[in-house]
Every structure is written in C-alpha cells, then in structure tokens.
Design a binder for these strands. Structure first.
Lengths: 213, 213
DNA sequence: TGCGAACCGTACCGTACGGTACTGATCGGG
DNA sequence: CCCGATCAGTACCGTACGGTACGGTTCGCA
C-alpha cells in the first residue's frame, strides 16, 4: 500500500506517520489538558522532532486544527436507513441515538477537544470552535435530522420546524450534563445513568412530537 | 462608612479596593480571554502593584477564585413569592425564568468565567468548575425548583422527580445554545431569538408537566 | 512633626514555551 | 557506491509569564 493511498484513508491528506503523531498529541491532550500540549512534549511522545512538527503542520494552531480534523475523520456515523419504520422501531432508534449522543459527548477525546476549543474561543476568533461544530456536531445532527424526517414521513412524528424538534430532542437528552462534564464533573460516575436518562428523554420527546394516541 | 461595613457588603470579606481590582480583572478576562489575564496586566489595569495582588489573593489561582466568588456575589436572584398562582401567572413566571436563564448564560462575564473554568478543568482538579457550579448554577436552580414546587402545590404541575422536571425545563430552554456560545458563536445575533425560544420551551414544558387539559 | 503601615511602580529572577538552526543517521534511487 | 532527501535529537534564541524584592510615596495616627 503506497503512502498516497494511506493518505486517502486518513481523509485529511495525512501521512500515516503524521496520523500517529496526531494520535499521540490527542493522548497528551486527554491526559494532561492544554497545558500538556507543548510542541516539545508532542515531539517527545511521538518520537519525532519539533522541526518535523513545524514542517508538517505549520505552527501550533495548525497542529491543533489537524488534531480536530483527524479525530473527526475517525468518527463516522452510519445513517440508519429506516425503510420500515413503525412506532416501536422509531422509539428504539431514538433511544439508540440518545445513548450514542451521550456517549460521544462524554468521551475523553471529545471533552478534551471541546475544552481546548472553548479555551481558545477568545483568542483565535473561534476558528477551532467553528471547526468543531462543523466537523463534529453537524455529523450527528444530520443523523438525527434524517431520523426525524423519516419519522415524519412515516406519520409517526409531527413537527413544522425540524431544527426546533431536533433542538428539543437534544435539550431533553443532554440537559446540562455536557457542561457539567466540561467543567470537570467525573464522567465515569455519570455514565451509569445514561440509559435511564435516554429513555426519559425519548419518552418526553415522543410525548411532544409523536402522533400516536 | 467603615471598611468593615463595606467588606460585609461585598459578601466575600473583600475591601472595596480589592473589589475594584477584581472588577478590572473580570473586564480584562472578558475582553481578552484567559491569555490577557496576567498578573502584570491586572496590576496595570487596576493601578495596583503585583505585590499587593499576591498579598491579597495569594497566587494567581486564588485571584481567579476570588473573581468567581466576587461575580457570584453580585448576582442575586430574587425568589418569586407566588402566593396566588394560576395557570396564567405560572406561564408568565416560567417565561421570565427562561428568558433570565438565557440572558445570564449569554452574559459576557458568565461566558468568560465558564470558558476559564473549563479551560482549567484538567489542571486543577475542577476546583473552579465546582465553584462555578455551586455559586452560580445552584442559585438559579433553586429559583427554578421553588417555582416548580409552587406550581405543583397549586395543582398546575405534575411530576414525581423535581430534578428530572428541572432538567427537562433546562434542556428545552437552553438546548445546545450555551455550548455554541462558549465555542465562540456570536452571542449578539442569538439574543434576538431568546424570546421566541423561551416561549417554545415553556409551551413544551407545560405540555409535558402541566395538568390543565 | 514624626512614625509606621500600606501600597504603587518597577526592576529583577527563574522557568517554560514557541519557533529555528544545526548535526548526524537512515534510506531509497541512480 | 554515492547522492539527496527526510527526519530524529538537541542545542539555541527571544519572549512572556508567575512570583519576589526593593525604593519611594501617601496617609492615618499619636
């Protein structure tokens, strides 16, 4: 397999070596926060030279951008092709979506990258923030939009504004858990409640937007 | 007015001078983010010496903690004593609460302090995060809890778990707007939609937990 | 008027980081 | 067998920050 093909696999125009470096950088970020994300530290952890880092990614911001893009390229959300959608399967898909959403938001890397982007929101004109929104959030948002649209087409859901419905679903599922985790609340303790939380949220959502009586 | 009395007013054992310094520090943080929050910068902006900063607040972390406490002491949420609560006034109080919540979360200082605490969540064991939760969030949470409880007492609301109901209300009102603003989305543009957003959220909440048919 | 405490302004120190430059080693191609 | 490119490792530079020390000034108080 040539390097060119591997580059295509990474989806970001990255060498496998560069991908490995970004992997180490993400690990450093997860373990030690932004403070630990120094060029010297990355070079040491990845067994590469600082000069190579700057040649590959330009500067520190470029490296961070590459980290976000790299992580986003690894998370691929498969669209649920719901041909035969009944009330029960819709309920199940919503539950799955809710659990997945909570799992993603509670993930180490997701939390670390969100913390990093939020911390730099004032300095860089929210470039990282927009990138995180576009590459991460929008993916799962599209999956939800497709699911909701399928539910409406099947006559199981009723709403005028899909964004509004999605906002309600998101809010019911996530509430303030994401912020609490970003602020440092131990995520491990909370994960146990994800299942019940997801079911409650989906029940409430269906009570609001479901058509079955 | 003696210094002791002013200290009591600040609610944090702070001199008025120290309060003025914290005010300048908050302004620096809002304008320039964490990067701008340097001891030299604060001393320059507040016309005081670095030595005084360290004498008063110990070190940089102590100063940041004092900033959070100082800001929290300025935000006092008045409890709505709802003696005569009917469906209409409850609806109005909920709308007011929702708007207030969105306004608070979209405030410059709130966003800046949340960004700061989130950025330091990995380093300091989430000390700032807990402080922000305890001093900020819990205040408005208590106000909401009182309102919901009053609604239930009046037979206008029906729920078993008050926390669950509050979580639903919070999620419906805030959805992912808070995170988007933390990531740098321009808050000014979004504020125009707060009114409609609050009404939608309250309607949904009442559809879920209201008793009137 | 003289004393002491508080404090401003500034100079200073050690450290750590971002970024650059240099050296030597590895490796693929002619 | 040699040439050029790539890269690891390290040394280096400028800067900026946290924290400390010191001289000079103000102000309350005896």
């Amino acid at each position: 397999m040539t390097a060119a093909i591997r580059e295509a696999n990474a989806g970001e125009g990255l060498t496998e070596r560069q991908g490995a470096v970004l992997e180490q950088a993400l690990r450093l970020l997860v373990d030690g926060g932004e403070k630990a994300l120094t060029t010297a530290g990355i070079a040491r952890a990845a067994n590469c030279s600082k000069e190579s880092l700057y040649k590959w990614f330009g500067d520190r911001d470029g490296l961070i951008s590459a980290m976000i893009g790299f992580q986003a390229s690894k998370v691929r959300t498969q669209d649920v092709a719901a041909r035969t959608l009944n009330a029960e399967s819709l309920h199940g898909h919503l539950i799955t979506f809710a659990k997945d959403l909570l799992e993603v938001l509670a993930g180490d890397v997701s939390l670390a990258l969100n913390r990093l982007a939020i911390g730099q929101a004032s300095r860089d004109g929210s470039k990282l923030g927009h990138m995180l929104q576009e590459r991460g959030r929008r993916q799962i948002g599209r999956r939800a939009a497709a699911l909701l649209e399928a539910g409406r087409k099947a006559g199981l859901l009723s709403f005028d504004d899909a964004d509004e419905a999605y906002g309600a679903l998101y809010g019911l599922v996530v509430s303030d858990w994401h912020l609490k985790m970003l602020l440092g609340e131990e995520a491990g303790e909370m994960k146990k409640g994800f299942g019940r939380k997801a079911e409650q949220a989906v029940s409430a959502f269906l009570a609001l937007y479901g058509t079955k009586r």
